[in-house]
Design a protein around this nucleic acid. Sequence first.
DNA 1: ACCGTATGCCAACACCTGTTGACACGCAAT
DNA 2: ATTGCGTGTCAACAGGTGTTGGCATACGGT
Lengths: 190, 190
Amino acid sequence: MTSPTRSRRSDATRAAILRAARERFAADGYERATIRAIAADAQIDPSMVMRYYGSKEGLFAAAAEFDLRLPDLTSVPPAHLGEVLVRHFLARWEGDETLVALLRAASTNPGAAERMRGIFADQLTAAVATFGSDPALTARRAGLVASQILGLAFTRYIVRLSPIVDTTPDELVAWIAPTLQRYLTGTPPG
Amino acid sequence: MTSPTRSRRSDATRAAILRAARERFAADGYERATIRAIAADAQIDPSMVMRYYGSKEGLFAAAAEFDLRLPDLTSVPPAHLGEVLVRHFLARWEGDETLVALLRAASTNPGAAERMRGIFADQLTAAVATFGSDPALTARRAGLVASQILGLAFTRYIVRLSPIVDTTPDELVAWIAPTLQRYLTGTPPG
DNA sequence: ACCGTATGCCAACACCTGTTGACACGCAAT
DNA sequence: ATTGCGTGTCAACAGGTGTTGGCATACGGT
């Protein structure tokens, strides 16, 4: 038995499968991304996928591993929270198709929706909770932020709505930052 | 041959198929909603679906027929545009699952995404254009509104994010109306 | 009453899906 | 050299998919 720290020969295959899976899931969604297509992209046999990831669900679970990597919001000037967040999100998934894969799959796959809920209810809510406003409101504030952020991602990467696709990240930040800012620090209506 | 105005006997079947199709597409998405399941819901044979709608794509095209029914925005006080819009959208699809079906399908089905683009790029942009601000900006304003509106729908009906699901329509309107108001009538940033 | 046709069901096709088990190769340790 | 195991390929299974053609039946016009 090789040492667990020593890289095994199959690690390259595992990585190739994961890369191909992310691409296919992002491009086609959960059901259209077939194991055969993923295996073909990775240039291996479909049965390898099963051996290394157990099932299609298991493969997706591994491929959709995602961390928002939210920055420490306590060290951000409170007036710039909105801008920092939009910019971070855009940068985060403009270069990583994992979230697009998750987004596409969440529409039809319950497990993916569950994971999406975890990411935006746990990670984001936790980050919002750090600059302690009214605890009773943090969940709602985080939810509202998620609604605008996910709407931006949905229109830009999934539906590909022209006015949103054609707008530069900087312009998007300028328009959307005030929205998040109000959701985060604005006084509740009513 | 029966008169085209006279209701034919099969109209009930056609309607039952359409109703079942909308339900299934809304609940399961395009690929998981099988013709057999739809036919079973409508209590008819799968081949009937093919005879009346030609193909699964044709059935979806018929089931996803959707009109935003946007009110005449010229007769709305400009300061209340945001509120009127959020309230209208919430009411519009809280009682009609067609848009949820379209939303779910748009993630994986190119035709559905195309239709979604049509709805929000044509109908919404046209409505925004009626209260004539800078024409060069109307498309972008409409796109931003779409991003928040679709994000709301996505988090509330698809991902079912708890803080958004648990919030009453009135509270959602209070929070989100100012966002749309700024996207519609606010001065451009920069 | 008759006949054409609209309506419906049944069985089957061809294809694709996730998944499985048997078998071959090559490397590493004994 | 031989043994054991990690790695990989091949073929096949069982089930589900959209879709098609043929056959019964019941309705509506004459």
